[in-house]
């Protein structure tokens, strides 16, 4: 038992052994998800609330499905509008929901640190489903599981993370996780989209994608947010695609068996050539979505277990 937290707020606080425990548990659920009968009872009687302060279809659906397959009562709250417009603060919204006694809160918020703040104000388990430009731990864990299944291991791999690193919580969580698991990480992108001082994280930075992809085992593409174009970070979509979009030519510099990943949703023709995304021999993008459900089931299972242990401790 290595994953002993009450919350999953980020990869930053996780030990290597805790990451392994989550991934091993997720393997079990990946197998279960292949069966016709996919339901188990580990969250039976527990209430899960998905609080999304920022639009999301995929992540929310994945968490909802994960909760339901584990037997939890799942409620979705879309909070982009309603209470925020009425001037209610995040903390008040959290306290209100807390009074309804949920057991698991899954939270996405457009600001870094907001999920952390919320977790201090409630007495249930909180899962960070993405906060601003800070972390997106479940995405990193599902990426790790996908890599481990495709490559047979999760260490000593050369992994290139390409695109908008600066504004990406996926990149941060992946950098931390893959670093903890002792892989060599390369960041590839235009200098305007790579944070200063990033070298201090023990990663290698490449501005030339051909060099950056040379001999890597994993190519991880990131979504380029449309609003970055207006911010003057890059001159145009076509120039970006030409220099940093993944096409077969650039991919040929990677190892022959290199896999291609993308957290979705994709901008075909901007960061990735549609044909690569659809090439089942290279792309594991659909597998990532599948592993997403399994990883989220594993995390909720382990958090519920920790909840029970703490509860028993309190009683004795």
């Amino acid at each position: 038992m290595s994953f002993i937290q009450n919350h999953l707020l980020g990869i930053e606080g996780l030990e290597q052994s805790a990451i392994r425990e989550i991934l091993d548990k997720a393997e079990e659920y990946a197998d279960l998800n292949q069966k016709t009968k996919k339901r188990v009872d580990v969250l039976s009687g527990l209430t899960q609330i998905n609080m999304f302060f920022e639009n999301s279809t995929r992540t929310q659906a994945s968490f909802e499905l994960a909760g339901k397959r584990l037997g939890a009562d799942v409620m979705n709250m879309a909070l982009q509008g309603s209470s925020i417009k009425k001037g209610e603060t995040l903390v008040d919204t959290a306290l209100t929901l807390n009074a309804m006694r949920p057991d698991l809160l899954v939270v996405r918020h457009p600001q870094s640190g907001a999920v952390d703040l919320l977790s201090q104000k409630v007495n249930c388990s909180v899962i960070n489903a993405g906060d601003g430009q800070h972390e997106h731990p479940t995405q990193a864990l599902l990426d790790a599981l996908t890599i481990r299944r495709a490559k047979g291991r999760l260490h000593r791999l050369n992994i290139a993370i390409c695109g908008d690193i600066s504004h990406s919580r996926v990149a941060r969580s992946n950098m931390l996780l893959l670093g903890k698991m002792e892989n060599r990480i390369r960041l590839v992108g235009p200098s305007t989209l790579i944070p200063s001082h990033i070298g201090e994280f023990g990663v290698e930075v490449y501005h030339d994608m051909l060099e950056g992809l040379k001999d890597v085992d994993v190519v991880m593409m990131l979504r380029l947010q449309k609003e970055r174009m207006d911010g003057g970070f890059i001159p145009s979509e076509r120039e970006y695609f030409q220099r940093y979009g993944l096409d077969f030519n650039k991919l040929s510099y990677a190892k022959d068996d290199a896999i291609v990943m993308h957290p979705g949703p994709m901008n075909r023709g901007i960061e990735i050539d549609g044909d690569i995304a659809d090439d089942v021999t290279r792309s594991v993008i659909q597998e990532q979505v599948e592993m997403g459900v399994a990883v989220r089931m594993a995390i909720m299972d382990l958090l519920a277990r920790n909840m029970k242990i703490n509860h028993t401790k309190l009683l004795t």
């Binding site: 870094s112 640190g113 941060r172």
Partner: peptide
Amino acid sequence: TSGKFSTLRGLPSVS
């Protein structure tokens, strides 16, 4: 302030 810490925390930073 831009640097390792602000990158880790995902906070908008300035040089």
